[in-house]
């Protein structure tokens, strides 16, 4: 059996496979650490500012999103994501990065057609499906 006889199948032997186990461990540790940090923030808001639980969680989410936006702006979030994989993309930090990176990217085309028009290019799908999922879940658990 040669490469030429069935290229699409045979070529797989030449393509390095992703390190699934290492990626999963990194995603678990980094994602878990970020979630723990957000939980600590929420507790801190709840304790220090006597914020009600829902409000404390919103504040914590906003802080995490803000942190991701700052890291995106200084050009570090993509390096962090390359390392952490799903641990960086599945959280609200990933959504914040998707929106901020598109906004920064398209600044060169102006504030309207560029920043505003393209801002949801990478994060739009997450927003749409997030809304649909929230609506459906809201029907099940009102």
């Amino acid at each position: 059996m040669g490469l030429k006889s069935d290229y699409v199948r045979e070529v797989k032997a030449f393509q390095p496979s992703p390190p699934y186990a290492a990626n999963a461990v990194k995603a678990f540790l980094v994602g878990g650490t970020l979630c723990a940090l957000a939980q600590w923030l929420a507790d801190w808001y709840g304790g220090t500012f006597a914020a009600p639980p829902l409000e404390a969680h919103l504040w914590a989410s906003m802080m995490m999103a803000g942190l991701a936006i700052v890291l995106t702006a200084v050009g570090k979030y993509d390096d962090f994501s390359q390392f952490a994989g799903a641990g960086a993309t599945m959280l609200i930090t990933g959504l914040a990065n998707a929106i901020a990176s598109a906004a920064i990217e398209h600044r060169s085309e102006g504030w309207t057609a560029g920043v505003a028009g393209q801002m949801l290019k990478a994060g739009g799908a997450a927003v749409i499906y997030g809304l649909i999922a929230a609506y459906v879940l809201g029907l099940v658990w009102p």
Binding site: Q15, P16, P18, N23, T72, A73, G75, Y77, D78, F80, S81, Q82, A84, G85, A86, A88, T89, G94, N97, A98, A100, S101, A102, I104, E105, H106, K121, A122
Partner: peptide, 17 residues
């Protein structure tokens, strides 16, 4: 990058290939 892939600062884990 911005034309063929993603915004340059978007955090995406790229494969070794």
């Amino acid at each position: 990058e911005r034309q063929f892939r993603y915004p340059t600062e978007l955090g995406v884990q790229k494969p070794k290939t």
